[in-house]
């Protein structure tokens, strides 16, 4: 009887620990610093990635996410594109970039400008500056999350990137 109660108590404690462990495991963020530490300085190089949106009608808002499948990319900066309607720096997680943990990036912007000033067709909306690590070719993944017209309606646009390799470190 006494042993059974002790066993039951251990069972309850084990269940509690398992629940706490699951919560802890689910709460863990990505290990960006670890992947950066895998490479020597000779494997590091910089590049810029131009992101274009091809819109069939005047583009007033856009949002994309850029990833790199092998984990060799770190975003070091983002700048605006070529359209005067989006003249300011687009929105992105500046803290993550400053802390060197931006293995991916979400960039977005909108314009309240007149419809006539909004870009139509293929337009460079942003340039992403990245540090690439490792000798293998990067595998970029671009997702256009949203694109909208001046009325705020979603439009069927497409997005592509162009990689400009830079200097090696």
């Amino acid at each position: 009887m006494r042993h059974t109660r002790i066993a039951a108590l251990f069972g309850v404690v084990a269940l509690g620990l398992a629940l706490a462990g699951m919560r802890f495991a689910l709460a863990q963020p990505g290990l960006a610093a670890e992947s950066a530490a895998r490479f020597t300085s000779s494997d590091v190089r910089f590049a810029t990635i131009d992101v274009y949106v091809d819109s069939p009608e005047p583009l007033a808002a856009w949002q994309f996410e850029l990833r790199e499948a092998t984990g060799s990319m770190a975003v070091v900066g983002v700048e605006n594109g070529e359209s005067a309607a989006f003249a300011g720096t687009p929105h992105y997680d500046l803290d993550a970039v400053a802390q060197g943990r931006a293995e991916r990036i979400i960039v977005a912007d909108y314009s309240l400008g007149e419809r006539a000033t909004l870009p139509v067709g293929r337009t460079r909306v942003a340039t992403v500056h990245v540090r690439l690590m490792g000798a293998q070719a990067p595998e970029f993944q671009l997702q256009l999350i949203a694109a909208g017209n001046a009325a705020g309606e979603a439009i069927d646009a497409a997005a592509v990137i162009e990689l400009q390799e830079g200097r090696a470190e």
Partner: peptide
């Protein structure tokens, strides 16, 4: 919040 990559470790 839309462009946030989540909290730092």
């Amino acid at each position: 919040s839309i462009v946030s990559l989540g909290p730092a470790e």
